[in-house]
Each structure stands twice: as structure tokens, then as C-alpha cells.
Write a protein that binds this DNA or RNA. Structure first.
Lengths: 143, 143
DNA sequence: GGGATTACTTGTACGATACAACTATATACT
DNA sequence: AGTATATAGTTGTATCGTACAAGTAATCCC
């Protein structure tokens, strides 16, 4: 790990971390039962309330066709439900079902526990700082 | 972002960051010319020198079949080369070609620049700290 | 020398994604 | 009102990254 330069190290470590995290998410060791994409979409619905596909696509910067398929998959599993916008017949609004809420809560809980384990031994200050820096990093990503 | 708990925030932000980074890597806005998987594999070869597939698979915790295909793809593009291990006829060793080295250097450079931009305005201390915490996070991931 | 092991390759499948073509609805302009 | 245009979403098709399982070739071990 001969990264002298801080930015070089960040690039290296973040690339590596992403690699590992993505792998983890799709391996048999994945956390919880929801696919990563499903978890993210449901989390978004939980945060934002009923949303149309376009909003979700915007939030994730994904193509709307991708969200359309993901939503259809979650709908068929009974995790989210669709209803039409009375004001605009083109629009489908989506919302978590009760079952979806339960599964999301369960999954969030499992993920959180997993992270707790991962961060065991970190001081509160370190965790706080890491969170803060990640927020900042995410902000930078959007520009 | 009403994450009171530091771990909760880290989970949230890291999930989000990974989402964005993966997207970025495969969008037309991706950094450099190499696919993410190609970049990682070539970076590994650059760091470790000639390696067999099994080593690479181990390093990334990926199935060897995945690496086999990736290696074949990079080989056909002339970015890496294959030679057999004189000591063991089953083994294929891989190494960067000159062209591969050039492309990797170019890509590393572009990625680094992109990260420099992303982290513009961060203090040296913040960058150093972020790097340090990422290293620690990566270490935790492996256990 | 023959069975077990190892290293890799190949067939097949799936998740996540994009782009392009399409359908249905809505809006805007004359 | 009527037509043209724009918008929301769906569906066809393609690609990347990945896994698992079956196959091949080389090696190892008794």
C-alpha cells in the first residue's frame, strides 16, 4: 500500500471498497434478503413517500426503463404497490406495501447490524468523522 | 438526512456512494477508457506482477470463471499477455503488455484527476483522515 | 500407472443497466 | 376543437459482471 498521496490512497481504497461491497451484496453472504437495487428503491420510497418512476430514476440517476423493470419486479413480489395519479393518467405512483415495509425494516436492521460489526472498535469520533466525510463525498459526486 | 446514529449514517452514505460510483463507472461519463473490472485486474497485475488466475480470483474474491473470461477479454485486446508456467502446465500466468501498461497509466491518471476534482476544497488533514478510515473499512470488510 | 486433485475453460443463467422503439396520455397552439 | 408536440412509462434487445456446474488437461500421490 505505497500510496503516499492522500488522493491516490482514497481512489485506491474507494475502488477496492466498492468492489468488495458490490460483491458482498450479490454473494450468498449478502446482507438481508433484498437485492441491492430493491433495497435502494424501497429505502427511497420509505424516505420520500409515494413516488413516480421518473422521480426515482432522477434520484438514482438511472434510466427510467431500469426503474420500470425494478418496480414491476417489486410489485409482483408484493413489496410495493402501484396506483395511478388521478391528476395525470400517464403517471404511476408507487408506495411500499405493509409487507414491503416489514421486509425493508428487517433488511435495514440486518444491514445496520452488519455495519455495527464492521465498525466495532472504532471510536465514536471516528465513526462520526467517517460519516461526515462520506456525506461530503456523496455531495461532491453529484456535481 | 435524519441519521442520528453514526453507523446508520455510514450505512446510508456508503450504500449511496457505491450506487453512484458504480453507475458512474458504467455511464458515458465514466472515467477513462477501461471497464471497472479491467482496471481493477490490470491494477492488480501492475501491483503484484505476473499472476495466475487463481491468485487474481483470490485477491478479488471472485469465481475463477469470472477472471478467466475477463483475462481472455483483456488478452484479446492486447492489454495483458498470457504465458505458461514452465513448472506447471496447468497454470496460465498473466502480465501487462506494454500497451496495457500505457493504458493503465493513462487511466490511473484520469481517475486520479477526477478524484482530485471531487476532493477539491478538502483540507489535507481531511483527505488524510478519509484515506485512513477507508483503509480501515477495507480491512474490516475482509474479516 | 491409475485415481484424485488442481487450474482453467466453457455453457448457461441472472441481475442491473442502457438505448431505442412503442403506447398512452397530456399540453399547447392555432 | 384539432393537430402537433411533449411526457411517462413499457418492452425489445444488448452488454457487463458475475456465479455455478460440467468439462478438459495437467499434475500429484500412492
Amino acid at each position: 500500500m505505497s500510496k503516499e498521496n492522500a488522493v491516490e490512497r482514497i481512489e485506491y481504497e474507494l475502488t477496492t471498497l466498492i468492489r468488495k461491497a458490490v460483491f458482498r451484496d450479490q454473494s450468498e453472504r449478502k446482507i438481508g434478503i433484498l437485492e441491492r437495487a430493491a433495497y435502494l428503491m424501497m429505502r427511497q420510497l420509505d424516505d420520500q413517500g409515494p413516488s413516480r418512476l421518473k422521480e426515482l430514476a432522477g434520484a438514482f440517476q438511472l434510466d427510467i426503463s431500469t426503474l420500470s423493470r425494478q418496480a414491476a419486479a417489486l410489485e409482483s413480489k408484493g413489496l410495493i404497490q402501484r396506483f395511478s395519479d388521478p391528476k395525470d393518467g400517464r403517471v404511476s405512483l408507487f408506495d411500499l406495501t405493509e409487507s414491503g415495509k416489514e421486509k425493508l425494516a428487517l433488511d435495514s436492521h440486518m444491514r445496520l447490524e452488519w455495519y455495527e460489526g464492521l465498525l466495532e472498535g472504532w471510536s465514536e469520533e471516528e465513526k462520526r468523522m467517517f460519516g461526515k466525510l462520506l456525506v461530503r463525498m456523496n455531495g461532491a459526486f453529484d456535481e
